[in-house]
């Protein structure tokens, strides 16, 4: 009697342990479950135009659950090997209380910092930019007509640019994603991207329209 009670308890506890481990949400937290859809600039025969990147991004308002999020942004790559970048975009998910929020963010040799801003309106298109005025080492990050802030980063030179939609789970549907007028800055001139390299992780898909415009869809 005692022995069968002990066996039954052991089996139940074992099952409970297995259930805890297999349903742990840490699985969806790992970096390997980040999904991307968008464009790399990737200068092929010269250094990237040094003074910045911008994009007009249509705001989608999609359902997000649990500790997940999606965000859409242009970014300046400061170093691929160390994972350094500056970024401006909009975000929706756990960390923004499931609200749409503009943000500015950087990772550099000084560490990571994130600044939450006001909320974009779903269905509207906003102009996002990162700009390095000629002869300076301080970037300006902003959304046209909404906000602008300075970013002092180290290193400060652009190695590449990206414009992407980023998701933490394939259960987020990003249909309706639309980036237009993706530009680089040369001096004080903004010019449309003259090249691009598309990138997307399944189930997401990039629909290439031109070097400076794409749509993305999938997920859900």
């Amino acid at each position: 009697m005692q022995r069968s009670w002990f066996k039954a308890t052991s089996v139940l506890l074992l099952l409970l342990l297995v259930a805890i481990v297999t349903t742990s949400p840490t699985i969806s937290y790992s970096a390997s479950t980040t999904y991307y859809a968008g464009y790399y600039y990737y200068a092929s025969e010269s250094w990237p135009p040094p003074n910045g990147v911008s994009a007009a991004i249509y705001t989608i308002d999609k359902s997000v659950s649990g500790e997940n999020f999606y965000c859409q942004w242009p970014t300046v790559i400061l170093s691929y090997t160390n994972g350094y970048w500056i970024q401006v975009g909009y975000f929706k998910g756990y960390h923004s209380g499931y609200q749409l929020k503009f943000y500015v963010e950087k990772k550099d040799s000084g560490g990571h910092q994130l600044w939450w801003k006001t909320s974009p309106t779903a269905g509207k298109t906003y102009g996002y930019y990162l700009f390095l005025p000629r002869g300076t080492t301080v970037w300006k990050a902003g959304v046209s007509g909404k906000f602008e802030q300075e970013l002092q980063v180290s290193p400060f030179t652009a190695r590449d640019y990206q414009a992407f939609s980023e998701m933490t789970t394939k259960s987020i549907n990003i249909d309706g994603t639309h980036f237009t007028s993706i530009c680089y800055a040369l001096g004080t001139d903004w010019r449309f991207w003259d090249r691009h390299v598309p990138g997307a992780n399944s189930p997401y898909e990039v629909i290439e329209i031109s070097h400076y415009e794409f749509k993305a869809r999938g997920g859900g």
Binding site: A31, Y40, Y42, G83, Q87, H112, Q162, E166, V197
Partner: peptide, 13 residues
């Protein structure tokens, strides 16, 4: 910061 890679990795493309 604990959840964001933030950029698409270079070796993806």
């Amino acid at each position: 910061s604990s959840v964001r890679a933030g950029i698409a990795p270079f070796d993806d493309v």
